[in-house]
């Protein structure tokens, strides 16, 4: 991989940036609008979905995480939501998230793109409103169907504190 945007004034591939932004915005909309299957289809077959706890760089094979899903577990998560008996999302949270500060972080010869973005999610449930803020980092792969996620890490600002239930897709 080589850096595409780290150095000030360096030319960036604006076409690629727009493509990545559109991917991330679409992912956000699928999450907010409970388009579970379309969200799941954004993953590669070896996707890893990680939401660390107690810091942003723990070792998920040694320390607890809020989510650490391999592809099979992502599928289980979606199936559970589809049962209609996932009580913590029945009724589902009302959600809208703002995604910003989208950056290209690196590009590999194999067509993989690393990108980062900040977000704020406004969640409304019977309990009340909960705000979730953090940074997502992606590894995106180019496939015949367009970009797909092989890795998404969500570093919540509050991940070292006690959190309310987080049963929607973050």
């Amino acid at each position: 991989m080589h850096a595409t945007s780290e150095a000030a004034g360096m030319r960036i591939d604006t076409d690629l940036l727009r493509e990545v932004e559109q991917f991330i915005f679409r992912e956000a909309r699928f999450q907010d609008e409970l388009e579970y299957d379309r969200w799941e289809a954004l993953w590669t077959d070896d996707g890893v979905y990680w939401v660390p706890a107690n810091g942003d760089d723990t070792d998920p094979t040694k320390q607890v995480s809020i989510i650490f899903d391999n592809r099979a577990r992502i599928a289980t998560r979606i199936k559970q939501l589809h049962t209609g008996k996932r009580h913590s999302q029945t009724p589902p949270s009302r959600l809208r998230r703002l995604v910003s500060n989208v950056e290209l972080l690196g590009e590999g010869d194999d067509g993989q793109v690393r990108a980062g973005a900040n977000f704020v999610v406004y969640e409304s449930r019977e309990r009340g409103v909960t705000l979730w803020a953090g940074r997502s980092e992606y590894t995106l792969c180019r496939t015949p169907d367009g970009l797909r996620m092989s890795y998404k890490k969500v570093a919540l600002v509050d991940n070292d504190r006690a959190l309310y239930t987080l049963a929607f897709l973050i």
Partner: peptide, 24 residues
Amino acid sequence: MLQQTIGSVGPAGFLLADDSEMYE
């Protein structure tokens, strides 16, 4: 045990998210 724990419990756990919804 760690990976099963991460899947089951905590704020996003397959089990505990729903227990917590019941408490509330």
